[in-house]
Structures are given as C-alpha cells and as structure tokens.
C-alpha cells in the first residue's frame, strides 16, 4: 500500500477539467479484487473521500478477515440499509408542505440502491479503518428477501458483537456464528423490527405533523419568508 498522506486536499477537487484519480483507493480496490476474486461484485470511489465495495454474501466474513490482514484493524461500525421507499411517504402530511416545498404526493417509488449497486431490499453495510494509512473502506453485501442471514464478523472484530445484535433487532438480520444474538436495546416483549421501512411510527399515524409552515406571515406579506422549518 502506498505511503500515508492526509486526505484533506480540497483544492484538487475544484479542478473540474482533469478527473481526479485517487491512487491509494484505486490500489486498495485492486488488491481487494486480487484477494477476493469474484466475490467483489460492485464498487464506487468518491475521489479523495471514500471507497465502497460490495461483496457476495458468502464472502462477507472472508472480506473482513482479508481487510484485517491488510492493516484495517479498526472496527468502525456495522449496520443495514432497507432500500424500500417508505409506504407512509415522508409522513409530512399537511397541505402546506406540498404548497411550500413543491413536494410530490405520497407515491412510493421503486426500490433503488445507492453506491456500489445492489439487487435486494436489504443490504448490510460495515466500515473498517486503517489507522496507519488513514484510509477507510465501506463494505456492503446484498441479502435476499426470504433469507436474511449472513456470516458474523465477531471472530475477526470483537466490536461487531453489539453492532450485530442491534442490526438483528432493528432489521431482523440473523448473523450466523454470533455467540449471543439477542435483543440489545428494546424490551423483551417488543414486536417488530423498528428500522424497517414498513414499521410505522404510530404517533404520526394518529396525529400527523401539522406542517412546516406554522408561523403566520407578517401582515402585508403573503410569501413564506419565515417558514422553512428551522
């Protein structure tokens, strides 16, 4: 891996004529592809900022072990993303919101994933960091809807223990090989997985938020100088 230099180079990004090439991250991606082979199914680099790599579900623990050998010994976090657009819209139900912000009415769109692509509704995302090189890498993996299971990172990174427990109770993702996969935050009799998009916030169902504009305009003014929700 190349030598460590700081990642703060704001001037280089401004020069839009020459596309910026982030050599360190490209080299890291190349060595990952070399180590994991076909398991790397997608990637994305934001130059001088970050690297996203999507791997196969079976290769999820191996990817962690490989990165750990490469010097990424700091465990940052592990969580999941549910890419289903919320069937409840943004829960901003008032008429004024549509007028002020020009928002579209609530029609949930298709499931669209973010960086490094994806094919499924649920994706597990984890981040590892290398302190000597000051480089971080985001790892993502797809989970099929009917089989929300993936290998655990706890043999390689002990900090993943609690993160995986939280992911389990919030999304319903099972981590095979986890020593103690029980609820972490929620009381024992809580039903449902709260961070899934189809879990409603009942207070907002019962009483919708009154809206962004809740300040009367000054007399004589008819536009929305005050109302921007700050």
């Amino acid at each position: 891996m190349s030598s460590a230099d700081t990642t703060v180079e704001p001037d280089a990004v401004e020069a839009a004529e020459v596309p910026v090439v982030d050599e360190r991250r490209e080299a890291l991606l190349a060595s990952l592809v070399e180590a994991l082979g076909d398991a790397v199914v997608g990637s994305h680099i934001r130059p001088l900022d970050d690297l996203w790599v999507r791997v196969d579900r079976e290769a999820w623990p191996t990817a962690a072990a490989t990165l750990k050998d490469m010097g990424f010994t700091f465990f940052d976090y592990l969580s999941a993303i549910d890419w289903l657009p919320s069937p409840y819209g943004r829960d901003m139900d008032a008429q004024e919101d549509l007028v002020v912000s020009g928002a579209e009415p609530k029609v949930p769109g298709p499931v669209e994933q973010g960086y490094a692509g994806g094919d499924t509704r649920f994706q597990v995302i984890g981040r590892l960091y290398s302190i000597p090189d000051a480089l971080g890498v985001h790892l993502k993996t797809d989970l099929p809807d009917d089989d929300l299971r993936v290998g655990s990172w706890t043999p390689h990174f002990r900090g993943a223990n609690w993160h995986e427990r939280e992911c389990f109770e919030m999304f319903g993702v099972e981590f095979t090989g986890h020593p103690n996969l029980v609820k972490l935050y929620l009381p024992a009799d809580f039903q449902g997985h709260p961070l899934r998009k189809d879990f409603p916030l009942l207070s907002r169902r019962v009483r919708p938020w009154p809206g962004i504009v809740d300040v009367e305009p000054m007399p004589g003014r008819d536009d929305n100088e005050e109302g921007d929700g700050e």
Binding site: P187, L201, R204
Partner: peptide
C-alpha cells in the same frame, strides 16, 4: 443498554 433508547435513526427518516 436500551433504557434511554429513543429511536434516533428512525426519527431522522421523518
């Protein structure tokens, strides 16, 4: 933990 869990990540979505 969990006795002060207020559900931040769900609240940020709305």
């Amino acid at each position: 933990p969990g006795y002060m869990h207020r559900g931040y990540e769900k609240l940020t979505e709305v």
